[in-house]
Amino acid sequence: EDYYQILGVPRNASQKEIKKAYYQLAKKYHPDTNKDDPKAKEKFSQLAEAYEVLSDEVKRKQYDA
């Protein structure tokens, strides 16, 4: 799945936009606030993985290549 789609940001998003999108979605899908939703944990880990790659310039360049 596309990391940009997961975070809901365009491919040319700035680091600030990526961070903002991640924090909004992380708050929304955090397992502690969605105890009754088994998919929230999965969504949250996808968000974390996408953010880890896109927030790191080197990893992001490799991902975009």
Rank of each mutant, 00 (worst) to 15 (best):
K61V: 05
K41R: 15
A26Q: 10
Y23T: 13
D56V: 03
A21D: 00
A26I: 11
D37P: 04
S45F: 13
V53I: 10
H30Q: 09
Y51L: 04
P38Q: 09
Y51E: 01
Y3P: 03
E49N: 08
D36H: 12
K20V: 14
K59A: 08
N12F: 08
Y22S: 01
I6M: 10
E57D: 09
A26G: 05
A21R: 09
K16A: 15
E42H: 11
K43L: 11
F44A: 07
Y3A: 03
D36K: 09
L7A: 00
Q62E: 15
T33P: 08
K35T: 11
K20S: 14
K28E: 10
L7Y: 00
Y3D: 00
G8I: 03
D36F: 11
S14V: 05
D56F: 02
L54D: 00
K35M: 12
P38W: 07
Y29P: 03
L54A: 01
A13K: 01
V53Q: 03
L47I: 14
K43S: 06
F44L: 09
I18M: 04
R11I: 05
Y23V: 15
I18D: 00
K39E: 12
K39L: 13
K61N: 07
P10T: 10
R60G: 01
K19W: 14
S14E: 06
A13M: 02
A50K: 01
A13I: 02
D36E: 12
Q15I: 13
P10M: 08
A26V: 13
K43E: 05
D32V: 08
Y29W: 10
A65F: 05
E1K: 10
Q62H: 10
K27C: 11
I18E: 00
A65L: 12
A48F: 14
S55H: 06
Y22W: 09
D37W: 05
E17K: 08
K61I: 05
D32K: 09
P31V: 08
Q5S: 12
Q62F: 07
N12V: 06
D64M: 02
E1G: 13
Y3F: 11
P38F: 07
Q5I: 09
A13D: 00
Q62K: 09
D32S: 13
E49W: 09
H30K: 07
L7M: 08
N34G: 07
A13N: 00
N34Y: 04
V53T: 14
N34H: 13
Y23N: 11
Q5T: 13
F44V: 05
Y63E: 03
S14G: 06
Q5M: 13
E52K: 10
V53A: 03
A13Y: 01
Y4R: 01
A50M: 03
K41L: 14
L47H: 02
L25K: 06
Y63G: 02
N34C: 09
